[in-house]
Nucleic acid binder design. Structure first.
Lengths: 352, 352
DNA sequence: CTGAAAGCGCTTACAG
DNA sequence: CTGAAAGCGCTTACAG
């Protein structure tokens, strides 16, 4: 039973009208009389007709599909992003063609497949994707939006958090709480996001005349951050504070410090991450973090994409979404543990 | 600059061949000579041609797009699933149209939108989605595969973990470690997945002649599990073990027990979840859990979907992927903390 | 192996 | 408001 799909032509025959009329009945704003529309609808319902969006987009040359490229869903920031993006885009009548890719290898080939589907735009939601992907989209004449990273190339819009200000806030917090041997775990060297966070962090330290005590690269991966933390903590004089370029790596660092090296957190070592992912708010983790509001960033991104589609000429914008420092028990002792009975208690943190 | 896309016709003109020849050059296995193919390729590269998959699927009536419906990406099991599914399907030349939906409301409407894109099949990856969605797909003649749940209706394939056996294993473990007041936090009442886990758990308790000491519903949400745990632990005689129907809820329970009620885990209370999500393996969480291997389940699901497309007549299968109990410090004291230096140390757990 | 032609299921000017 | 017709960019029998 390879039942073919019902077509507009079949509905037209059943309703005794032209195929154009069927099309109009399913096109909001088309010039069609109410009786005609009802008649078509009745026949359509009886037959179980559903307009073929593929055929539609072939002729309108708008697929109403947005390509979303995500690289590493194990970092919990990205599931939140995908969830929020999906919601926002669906609300605007767009579908999402999802592309996941592990690092750069093969990404070009899968992006090529994506572009064959004539997506209306592409959102690149990963700091590790080569900017070559953005260029490929540009070359294909497809609007690109970078999410959580920027690019030097002009004409590429982006939505990011306050990377530099966030890094600076973490540094000031470490200094204010008496830390004098702060270290940094970078993401990947060639990512604007990680660089900006580091830059802000270094600026904050310099303000206070404190030198960076150590620096390792965690490659944005859990295992990478585990190794980086071991190297930092095995030094003769280990750091008394570590800022990891994102929560995912900071949580790995926390595990190594507390359970492998028996370093007390926050007593002997303060920890801070970036993103304020959900696990950071869990009481057993309670990780100080600079928040990037995924939902708001996704909303901005969806709006930006729609704007790119509706007004192609408009110059691409770089939007920065405001964040805030969430203080938790990984860096300060006096933050209240969860005690209140009023929900939601798990995302509380002292706001700076 | 609304540069239109390059078409096969334009490539044909540039190469001085017919449009059919261009089509054949991009169709693996088509009968075309090597010189002809090279000539077309050269022209195509020069013009930046990319075949329009939309047009292609209109005529082949295979879109090579699989609809994936996921409901709640905050439960970290689902990001792993989406990631793995995406990888597996991409490897088989399929694209993914992603649909996220919060609960039942509005899900029908968005599924309708999905079906208009003539996806070749739909994977329903959420225990909370109404089985009405599966029926809608069936009615539209589109193959459906349930992921992490089953349905009474025949002809609907599924891929699940060992829910019943897993529940039983947790019960036996609680009993074996001396727990006598075991409680259960259910997911949602009408989910086959949660029901099977509970059924296995009760069977395991009955074997030992131990009665269920408490039961609450967490609605599969973090906040819901927080409230459920409070109700359980505020009893005059609180439980000495809690099995939550998934890790997401178990982690919420852990936070409440340790940080709000000051109940020692695992001393006064043993905790266990289901799924073996990544956070369960983090040393600060170290949650005993029955593993559902997301990657393997995704692989099976991808294979099953491809089989449904290639052999439409074949009866739908219900596949169960083997899991295993991961013992960690939320339920036993003698599990070694992370000590080894050989990676990957964070997913270790004593296997039963 | 190659090309001309029909056709996939729609949208949208164009007449009426 | 309605219908006949052209056409979106391809694939695929059909001849040659």
């Amino acid at each position: 039973m390879v039942r073919r799909h019902v077509t507009a032509e079949e509905v037209a025959q059943a309703a005794g009208v032209s195929q154009s009329a069927v099309s109009r009945a399913f096109t909001p704003g088309a010039s069609i009389s109410l009786p005609m529309r009802d008649r078509v609808q009745a026949a359509a319902n009886a037959l179980g007709y559903r307009p073929n969006a593929i055929a539609r987009s072939l002729i309108t040359s708008r697929s109403r599909i947005i390509g979303v490229v995500a690289a590493y869903l194990h970092n919990h920031f990205y599931p939140s992003v995908v969830d929020a993006l999906s919601r926002e885009l669906q609300a605007r009548g767009q579908q999402i063609l999802l592309l996941t890719t592990d690092g750069a290898e093969g990404a070009e080939a899968t992006l090529d497949a994506l572009l064959r589907y004539r997506v209306d735009a592409v959102i690149l939601a990963s700091v590790t994707l080569s900017s070559g992907l953005a260029q490929t989209c540009k070359a294909a004449g497809i609007p690109v939006l970078l999410f959580n990273r920027t690019a030097r190339a002009p004409g590429v819009g982006s939505v990011t958090g306050e990377n530099r200000a966030g890094g600076r806030a973490i540094a000031r917090h470490f200094i204010a709480t008496g830390r004098r041997r702060p270290a940094f775990i970078a993401g990947v060297e060639d990512s604007s996001t990680s660089r900006e966070r580091e830059r802000g962090f270094l600026e904050g330290l310099r303000e206070a005349g404190v030198a960076l005590h150590g620096r390792e690269v965690g490659h944005l991966r859990f295992d990478g951050a585990v190794a980086a933390t071991r190297r930092l903590l095995r030094q003769r004089q280990p750091p008394d504070a570590i800022f990891a370029a994102n929560d995912h790596m900071a949580i790995a660092a926390m595990g190594v410090a507390r359970h492998e090296m028996c370093v007390s957190v926050p007593g002997a070592l303060a920890l801070a991450g970036f993103d304020d992912t959900e696990p950071a708010g869990w009481p057993d983790i309670s990780l100080t973090s600079y928040a990037q509001p995924a939902a708001e960033m996704a909303c901005r991104a969806a709006e930006a994409v729609m704007a790119m589609l509706d007004r192609p000429g408009e110059p691409a914008r770089r939007q920065v979404v405001k964040g805030r420092l969430m203080l938790r028990r990984s860096s300060v002792n006096d933050v209240l543990p969860i005690a209140s009975s009023k929900p939601p208690p798990y995302h509380l943190g002292k706001q700076l």
